[in-house]
């Protein structure tokens, strides 16, 4: 098993005729993902490779029975794309797009929720259940099927850690990027709960970073609710306060969101925190 996506997942790519959308639609399909269609307004009837393009989500879902969407549209169209996906009955909306205004996300988050769907991202690398399904932009080759769950706020840092897991023979059940923005559709706790339930996940790697208090809340959850081992790494120990470190959400403000408080919270919850990304496989192995 795995969480959120597997062999049965049927994916629509929103923004499929764009440069990124078409490239990643084909790369996901090549990995074995069931990419059943794409949407670009006004381009219905075209094809990208052999993937049919529709003009609207409602039609695409009706024709293909898709349950998941991947959004690659520019930031100014992201809110419309998210809402359209939610309205069409899609269950999992993966928003890769970076730069969605925060105030729009406040609305989108609750809109998707009330439609009974789940949003992942925005500004995230997506999700992969190795050997089964990839919905996103991560390099597939570094992954290996196995029993470790990975949750991260970052893209390339996740690749770094997944690579070292694979190198040491520790495959992954599912790797999820929740995104680097202040408002994330899906958070650490949602995913920790899913991994705890997933019979094929033995342990979890959680990659956090400075900004906000999501890691502190996750630590609290792990302490009280989880039996499976979790190990962590927090990026940004050396980041200066008040500066936005690339990610919109990676900022220490008003003394909150520092690496120290997050590391402290994890240690208090019995979660080992690695000093370097390549230490994580060893820390996890010690607990399994």
């Amino acid at each position: 098993m795995s969480i959120l996506v597997d062999n049965n997942t049927k994916v629509i790519v929103q923004g499929i005729t764009g440069r990124d959308g078409s490239f990643h639609a084909l790369s996901m399909r090549e990995y074995g993902t069931k990419v059943v269609g794409g949407v670009t307004p006004g381009k219905g009837g075209q094809k990208v490779g052999d993937i049919p393009v529709f003009s609207a989500m409602e039609e695409a879902v009706a024709e293909t029975g898709a349950d998941t969407s991947a959004i690659y549209v520019p930031a100014k169209f992201a809110t419309d794309a998210i809402k359209e996906a939610a309205d069409s009955g899609i269950k999992l909306i993966v928003c890769i797009t970076e730069g969605v205004p925060v105030n729009e996300m406040l609305e989108n988050y609750y809109y998707v929720k009330s439609a009974g769907a789940r949003l992942l991202g925005p500004n995230c690398p997506g999700i992969i259940s190795p050997g089964k399904c990839k919905v996103g932009i991560m390099p597939a080759s570094i992954h290996m099927p196995g029993k470790i769950g990975v949750i991260s706020r970052s893209g390339t840092l996740t690749y770094e850690v997944v690579y070292s897991l694979t190198e040491t023979g520790m495959g992954q059940s599912t790797c999820v990027g929740i995104g680097g923005d202040a408002i994330a559709g899906t958070g650490f706790i949602d995913l920790l709960a899913m991994f705890e339930e997933d019979p094929d996940t033995d342990g979890v790697v959680l990659l956090g970073e400075i900004g906000g208090e999501a890691e502190e809340k996750a630590a609290e959850y792990i302490k009280t609710e989880m039996k499976k081992p979790v190990v962590s790494f927090i990026a940004g120990r050396s980041a200066p306060p008040g500066k936005r470190m690339g990610h919109a959400g990676a900022i220490i403000s008003g003394g909150k969101g520092t690496a120290e408080t997050k590391i402290e919270a994890f240690k208090d919850a019995g979660v080992p925190v690695a000093d370097k990304p390549d230490e994580m496989p060893r820390l996890l192995r010690d607990l399994l």
Binding site: S152, R153, S154, G155, T156, L157, T158, Y159, E160, G180, L207, E209, I210, F233, A235, G236, R237, S238, A239, K243, M245, G246, H247, A250, A259, D275, K276, P277
Partner: peptide, 25 residues
């Protein structure tokens, strides 16, 4: 020079861990 914000932060952190100091993110 790093690609990705998370890896860029982690790179600065590891520089510090080895006793150095980054000039930039």
């Amino acid at each position: 020079i790093v690609n990705g914000a998370g890896l860029a932060m982690a790179t600065m952190d590891v520089i510090k861990l080895f006793g150095g100091e980054a000039a930039n993110f």
